[in-house]
Simulated assay, not measured.
Amino acid sequence: MTEPSVLRLSIFVTFALAVFGVVFGLLTGSASIIFDGVYTLIDAIMTSFALLVAKLIAVSHNDFGQARLTRNFTMGFWHLEPIVLGLSGTLLVGTAGYGLIMAVGSLMAGGRHLDFDLALIFALVALVSAVGMIIYGRRANKRLNSSFIALDVKAWTISAAMTGALLLAFLTGWMIRGTALEWLSPYIDPAVLALVCLIVLPLPLPTIRDALADVLLVTPPEMKKRVDEVASDAVQRHGFLSYRAYVARVGRGRQIEIYFIVPPGLPPRSLEAWDLIRDEIGEEVGGTGPDRWLTIAFTVNKEWAE
């Protein structure tokens, strides 16, 4: 089980449900089902982009990727991850906002009639599919710890909540047929659409916030604190004057640059000795692997470090 394989399955199921939702929405006359299909379709498209970025990041770590793909992207592809996450979250918020406006307009116009029998079939199939993908995604991400899969699980959770609300509403509409409350039937579809939109509107906001922080290279406090601790210890241990540390998180990538200010006239050391110091500091910083970009430099001139 890999990140791309999990995302590929999610894309396939999402596209299938999106088409299923749009068709059933048109057959039943339900705006909420059409909205669910469109929302799901947008999620599928953005998951496809997420899969592409995941592949680019993975390929850039091997020799073939270095020879072919990274020739024009020597800094890697990490920066694409927060862009995709931010765009995905923004589109989902925009879709929910538009759905809310349409629902309010429909309520003010007297609602709409729909076929509750077909609507119930759609809601049941969609809910079972969404719950199945949530369980599968969460289990997979316990091992993979992927931001893309986490966002995908969040999207499936939103979809399940939306579909559950639709199921409850359609069941209510089906039960009140032929009763004194049947006059409420035209309002059920736009009312549940408005409720669902109000619920899902704020859910992607944390993802958008985190993605924006990565795009703007906002320094993560805990990460900076750890680097400062390691650099300060190195200054004391090796007799350096001071240091400058620059830290940023870009998607799954961590970019760290540490410049040590050494005293003028320090006794010469071999390059191997300086590399040993770098290895020592790198181990203390931690997080070794293809997603860490660590630069350690030594200079007597502060201008090179600022």
Score class of each variant (00 low, 15 high):
173 G>D: 14
299 T>C: 07
48 S>I: 00
142 K>P: 02
193 L>T: 14
283 E>W: 03
90 T>V: 08
119 A>N: 03
190 P>N: 14
296 I>A: 06
288 T>W: 05
229 E>N: 06
196 V>K: 03
29 G>I: 02
247 V>Q: 03
137 G>D: 08
167 L>W: 11
210 D>H: 11
58 A>D: 08
152 D>W: 02
25 G>A: 09
205 L>F: 06
119 A>E: 04
155 A>Q: 11
117 D>P: 02
96 A>I: 01
257 E>G: 02
278 R>H: 06
68 R>G: 08
65 G>N: 12
144 L>Q: 01
80 L>G: 12
195 L>C: 07
168 L>R: 04
203 L>P: 00
160 A>E: 07
16 A>L: 10
76 G>E: 07
148 F>S: 05
99 G>V: 01
269 R>I: 06
132 G>K: 08
118 L>H: 01
226 R>I: 01
203 L>V: 08
236 Q>G: 11
177 R>S: 15
170 F>I: 14
159 S>N: 13
249 R>A: 09
99 G>E: 03
169 A>C: 13
164 G>N: 12
120 L>T: 10
298 F>D: 05
71 R>Q: 03
199 I>D: 07
13 V>P: 03
179 T>S: 15
118 L>R: 02
68 R>D: 13
54 A>L: 02
17 L>C: 13
167 L>V: 12
83 I>K: 08
39 Y>Q: 01
287 G>N: 04
136 Y>W: 07
142 K>D: 06
32 S>N: 09
259 Y>K: 05
161 A>N: 10
57 I>W: 03
202 P>V: 08
18 A>Q: 00
191 A>Q: 11
291 D>K: 02
68 R>L: 12
165 A>P: 02
179 T>H: 13
37 G>R: 04
252 R>L: 02
6 V>I: 07
246 Y>K: 09
171 L>C: 09
151 L>M: 13
36 D>F: 05
286 G>S: 06
